[in-house]
Write a protein that binds this DNA or RNA. Structure first.
Length: 267
DNA sequence: AATGTACGCAACCGCTCGAAA
DNA sequence: TTTTCGAGCGGTTGCGTACAT
């Protein structure tokens, strides 16, 4: 399985316009998926992986090319702080951007800076192009699915010292999903007393992210990046029509079950 | 103008996960 | 319950281009 392309004698390297045309035509005819069938269907001497990658990263409709906008950069920073190198998740929150784009952008613009300041820096502030952005290494939150519970939706509580359970409504099966989020530190003191504490802690975490935002927001856009993104993609989410999103625009909202919670918190 | 170097991006590779048998 | 296989992801590589000398 996952036979390397080279061993099959298939073509590698840059794609030609003709290949792009064939692949695009194939996807239009048969739809996405069944990638193992795509090379044969399209008449391409490429391996399925190569076809899939080309489609996802380049040919898919609504793919944005060019420089990242300040609000996109801001969102990448925020989400990377939360999610780490989970590029597909981060890209899912950036309409028109692919995981590869985000990954490349991060590696190009931030990874080096991160390495430079990885040891405890006296001043974590860096000049990135024209903006001053603080880039630090973070404790990464890795959400993991858990069994359903009968707890009310949109409810969160601490189950032990290392994790928070949050509940959200699955928009497909209308059942309540329980998500456990492992964290580095449980809130203590006055923040640890009520059911809302988990949310409060998340909020605090994201408020820390705001330090980044405030420093980034030196440019001349009037609305915050979050406001802009909210306007752009949130209506279908809010009114429950997320499924109506075109396939090319799909951001896989389902793949990350805490999405709604994250979204609420990011606002 | 020629050459060397750095950078950015497209593409490949190998691994993991999850669904199906 | 176990095995198989397809799909997807993150890390890495290599090529083309821009920039510096």
């Amino acid at each position: 399985m996952n036979t390397p392309c080279a061993s099959l004698g298939v073509r590698k390297g840059s794609w030609t316009e003709q290949e792009d045309f064939l692949l695009r035509k194939c996807i239009q005819t048969y739809g996405e998926g069944k990638w193992h069938l795509v090379p044969a269907r399209a008449g391409l001497n490429r391996c399925r992986k190569s076809c899939r990658l080309r489609w996802l990263n380049y040919l898919r409709p609504h793919i944005k090319r060019g420089d990242f906008a300040p609000d996109e950069v801001d969102l990448i920073l925020r989400l990377h702080k939360l999610l780490g190198n989970r590029w597909s998740l981060i890209a899912g929150r950036l309409p028109g951007r692919t995981a590869n784009d985000v990954k490349n952008y991060w590696n190009t613009h931030f990874q080096k800076k991160l390495n430079i300041i990885a040891p405890p820096p006296p001043s974590p502030h860096l000049q990135i192009k024209h903006k001053s952005i603080a880039v630090t290494k973070n404790e990464i939150i890795r959400p993991q699915p858990r069994n359903f519970s009968n707890v009310e939706k949109n409810n969160s509580h601490w189950c032990n010292n290392k994790s928070m359970i949050t509940n959200t409504l699955d928009k497909h099966d209308k059942r309540c999903k329980e998500i456990v989020v492992t964290i580095s530190e449980k809130p203590t003191g006055e923040n640890a007393s009520s059911i809302d504490d988990g949310v409060q802690w998340w909020t605090n975490l994201l408020e820390n992210c705001n330090e980044i935002e405030e420093e980034v927001a030196v440019t001349n856009f009037e609305k915050t990046p979050i406001m802009l993104l909210h306007e752009e993609i949130s209506p279908p989410l809010i009114n429950g029509e997320g499924n109506s999103m075109q396939q090319g625009q799909s951001h896989d909202w389902d793949d990350f079950s805490t999405d709604i919670d994250l979204w609420n918190l990011l606002n």
